[in-house]
């Protein structure tokens, strides 16, 4: 069995970053810092796992950041509205969670249906819904901030900050999502179909695969995962505004690409995506901890890494063709 350097590339980069971080600042490997990095990665991470499926099937979703903000806003409004009737208890919070998850599913369905049934380019559809969701949450917040009732916020808080030991719930959820995502992509019929569609949708159609339905399902899965990210995000700040989740879509797409999933579809790597997410948040963390380079250059370094990852992918493809 030949070791594929290109598959390992992102992993090697991740390990190098961890070593670099440890050398630069002893606080880097402290449990508190690691928990912090992982928990902050969890939101983008769950979304990026869903994005891996969408991109592998040959699609794209630019709306996830706005969708997250919108779902957070709607969930907060729902919980505040349910509070007088239901009281300050987990029932109210469960309503909020349900609203976020169901809303994500519906929003994903909306994107997917416009793409597969109305046959509009994914880029255009999700560019449109990106604007729509962002504008709706700003409107709901009347240009300001939607805040969860203080009592509920206290009750809800442990969902972000609590956990088993120093492993907080967002980390656990992210891990479960990643493992399930990897399993589905690698070992399930759905995953095989997703890869087949991204590889050549005509071949998939001629193999009696319902291409539209599978594509639609990838968008719904992504919507659901955005909803899940929102469920864990709301207790962190207890509020949502027009500025929530800005650029999340680009971070998620970047993580997918750094992880080795081809933007043109056909080959999905969920593990790679997880590594990609961790690389992106580690760079941020290291720059903040060490005063080697200004944290303001974070975006530039991430940009270089994205381009580098794509260059490596391209080399792989030409090597295959030879």
């Amino acid at each position: 069995m030949k070791i594929d350097l290109h598959t390992l590339g992102p992993l090697v980069a991740l390990i190098a970053l961890v070593i670099l971080g440890a050398v630069l600042n002893s606080a880097f490997l402290a449990p508190a810092n690691i928990t912090n990095v992982l928990a902050r990665s969890a939101f983008i991470g769950m979304i990026a796992v869903g994005m891996t499926f969408v991109i592998t099937a040959g699609g794209l979703d630019l709306s996830v950041g706005s969708m997250a903000a919108f779902l957070a806003g709607v969930a907060i409004i729902a919980m505040n509205a349910a509070l007088p009737g239901m009281g300050e208890n987990w029932g109210t919070i469960l309503i909020g969670m349900g609203v976020a998850l169901l809303g994500g599913l519906i929003a994903g369905y909306l994107n997917g249906a416009l793409i597969t049934k109305a046959r509009i380019e994914p880029f255009i559809v999700t560019l449109g819904t990106m604007g729509i969701f962002r504008s709706l949450v700003t409107w709901l917040a009347d240009g300001g901030t939607l805040s969860l009732d203080f009592g509920l916020r206290t009750l809800y808080r442990p969902v972000y900050y609590g956990g088993i030991g120093w492993i907080t719930w967002p980390i656990i959820t992210f891990a479960v999502v990643a493992i399930a995502g990897e399993w589905i992509m690698r070992h399930s019929r759905f995953g095989r179909h997703v890869e087949a569609i991204g590889s050549n949708d005509r071949v998939a159609r001629y193999s009696a695969i319902d291409v539209g339905r599978i594509r639609l399902m990838t968008y719904m899965l992504l919507g659901l995962l955005v909803g899940l990210a929102v469920v864990l995000y709301v207790p962190r700040l207890g509020s949502a505004s027009g500025g929530t989740g800005v650029l999340w879509e680009l971070e998620a797409i970047a993580a997918v690409i750094i992880g080795g999933t081809a933007l043109k579809g056909g080959r999905g790597r969920v593990w790679g995506t997880v590594v990609g997410v961790l690389i992106l948040s580690l760079i941020d963390n290291i720059l903040n901890l060490a005063d080697l380079v200004s944290p303001y250059l974070n975006g530039a370094i991430q940009g270089v890494i994205i381009v580098l990852a794509v260059v490596l992918q391209r080399e792989k493809r030409t090597a295959e063709e030879r």
């Binding site: 890869e195 087949a196 590889s199 050549n200 071949v203 056909g266 080959r267």
Partner: peptide
């Protein structure tokens, strides 16, 4: 263009 996934393995193609 419609029969085989040229960038996938034999097994994946056979059972698609």
């Amino acid at each position: 263009e419609a029969g085989l996934l040229l960038d996938k393995g034999l097994r994946q193609n056979l059972t698609l």
